[in-house]
Nucleic acid binder design. Sequence first.
DNA 1: TTTAATTCGGATAATTTTATCCTATTTTAA
DNA 2: TTAAAATAGGATAAAATTATCCGAATTAAA
Lengths: 144, 144
Amino acid sequence: MFSKACEYGIKASIFIALSSYKGVRVSLKAIAKEINSPEAFTAKILQDLVRHGVISSTKGAYGGFEIEKALISSVKLSHIVNAIDGDAIYSGCGLGLHTCNEEHPCPVHHKFKSVREELRSMLENTNLEELALNIKSGASFLKI
Amino acid sequence: MFSKACEYGIKASIFIALSSYKGVRVSLKAIAKEINSPEAFTAKILQDLVRHGVISSTKGAYGGFEIEKALISSVKLSHIVNAIDGDAIYSGCGLGLHTCNEEHPCPVHHKFKSVREELRSMLENTNLEELALNIKSGASFLKI
DNA sequence: TTTAATTCGGATAATTTTATCCTATTTTAA
DNA sequence: TTAAAATAGGATAAAATTATCCGAATTAAA
């Protein structure tokens, strides 16, 4: 459903949020270890998220990645997915037609409508705070 | 959401169903033209669908692809998707965790639940007959 | 001021997906 | 029986995605 890059990006963001809560920046190394992802590839994805303003970074010793505490609850999954994969998943045509809309629908356009809509709404209404809290409480997991 | 191969596979199957209704087999060439797909690549996908028993083929002059009339309504989108992409879209973990279930959920497991479920149900309950009839009536389109 | 710990960014490699080409095989009609 | 029209299938190529490597730049502490 999502690209590997996007999966890593979401998991990394959650872990960064969790750590930012405690007021500590996390290094690439720590992130990759925690979410079980290849370090160098994860670095590229984090750079991308920084460029898109989803997370922020600090270079040098004691540097790392973080999300300003006050912003954690306003970062939605849709921001991350958009930054990495774009919005094709929930706004593109399910069968790849260039032009697909109500007037000129692909064969599954209407069938997909509610699925697409529910996905979009879910991504736009899920924020990093709730996801991080579930990790903290042990209700959900970032790896294995 | 789906791979290109799967998109082509679905569109091709709908066109084959449409033609089989009229009692005529369609050639690879006609299919690729109708759904606007690369011919040789489409051939591979059709071979795959034949192997999985979704469609049937006849070699030689006047040969081509078809779906037995009586079976058209029983071919579901899920059969096609499964044959080409597998069931990962609606049964795999949204974040790619190897183990992701109610007891050990990934951060978005519950959030994705209804989306995944709706997608699965839609694929399992949509058959080629209805999709073909909408093409026939001009209510939906296979290309552009 | 030097050193160590970091992120950044460019180059490259490996893998997967998408796409093409060519030959073999099958089938029908002339 | 031969020729033409098809699918089947193997080999290969192109493109996209995933992954790795290495040096540059930055920062803080010793």
